[in-house]
Write a protein that binds this DNA or RNA. Structure first.
Lengths: 217, 217
DNA sequence: AATATCAAAAATTTTGAAATTTAGTTGTTT
DNA sequence: AAACAACTAAATTTCAAAATTTTTGATATT
């Protein structure tokens, strides 16, 4: 299978956030080159770029590993995500115009539609990326009017890392879970459209707090 | 001149944050390989790693550039730095123990000593990295008890990007500037040791606000 | 039993050149 | 003169092999 580096990048990223590569697993260019029909250097190149996102760990002279997961790191990532999203939404509510409101409504509509389907059909591999992409689009749109490229880009990377930390979690992604999620997303949307900064920040916290492992200060 | 990749990395980073490479300047592996006596691929490797820090821009199929600077981006970086440092110092004051206080005092002592020398001798290339390193150590120590590796690591990268945004600024790094800085660092230290979260956050903001170009919300 | 030494194997990094892509120039057509 | 195509030079990316470094596992030493 001969593919371009964009395909290799996307495929490796997908395998990283779906735990096809287990956390901490060694990623050897010499092994992977066979699967993708390219040279080890190309794999190395792609892995360096993935380490920028934070889903791959790189250490000089000792290669690459899939980012490790742990309750502590998951907690840390979640806390950081809350910090960025709360500041992002604060600024978005201050700066956002009608177009932002419309885009947010659209993103939420798409997301809640998919979540309703999941409640009906149960969660499976087909919905995994569909839902994850839609959820990212909603949260990204939420902060998209913050006026800070740096904040938004950092949030994007953290979101991917967050997914990677979640995926191996033994958690029931059943009907109840998605029913709760639907309600939380609705609460976030309502507060945002109401221009209620504090209410929206609280809703964001309430949406993410289940991923915190110790009490937060 | 034959050097290892660590030396190449450090040398390129130094040239990026001292504007030896001008903002937006193209960084061509084929050109740079001559200077460092290595192959183009090795330079490429190093530049990919520097793009993780955020001082180099990479775009597929069109290579590398030194990160651009602009009043807007400088403002953005500064605002993000304020967000991270204010949260970092809040958590550090909540979590920090006596050892943290001692390390912070030590870092401040070293920094203020260097700053006093600069006031006496005037700022020059010799002091540039000496001061920058000491200033980073102070600010990094300030947030070092925050308990979040992710926050601290992100702050480190942002600090380097901040330096890069500052360096080409037409600003008088004369006696008055450093006298002001000395006072600001002292104010930050005092508030931290007094365990005054709000006071310290305000001191951090007052220290960085000169780099903001528009009013902040 | 624990630690140190060493050679072999495996993995990472670097190289130099080939293949591909982009950017710039010239020339043609409308 | 503007738009478009063809060509060329330069730069980026990819490759396969060589060089370097780390890891492994067996043997020897404390």
């Amino acid at each position: 299978m001969r593919v371009g580096t964009t395909e290799i990048y996307d495929d490796l990223l997908r395998k990283l956030v779906t735990a096809t590569f287990k956390p901490g697993e060694k990623l050897k260019p010499t092994t992977l080159q066979g699967e993708y029909g390219c040279s080890a250097n190309t794999i190395r190149d792609v892995l360096l770029r993935l380490s920028k996102v934070g889903v791959v760990e790189f250490e000089m002279q000792r290669g690459f590993r899939a980012q490790n997961t742990s309750p502590e790191h998951r907690h840390d990532i979640t806390r950081f995500r809350i910090l960025l999203e709360q500041e992002g939404v604060r600024l978005s509510i201050l700066n956002g115009d009608l177009v932002w409101e419309a885009r947010l409504s659209a993103a939420h509509h798409k997301l809640s539609h998919i979540e309703s389907q999941i409640v009906r059909d149960n969660f499976n591999d087909f919905y995994a990326t569909l839902w994850s992409d839609a959820e990212f689009e909603f949260h990204d749109t939420l902060i998209s009017a913050c006026g800070s490229e740096v904040l938004r880009e950092t949030y994007g990377n953290i979101y991917v890392q967050f997914r990677q930390q979640m995926v191996n979690l033994e958690r029931d992604f059943g009907t109840d879970y998605f029913k709760a999620i639907i309600h939380e997303h609705q609460t976030i949307l309502d507060a945002a459209l109401r221009r209620d900064i504090e209410g929206c920040q609280t809703a964001v916290f309430d949406h993410l707090k289940r991923n915190l492992t110790v009490d937060i200060k």
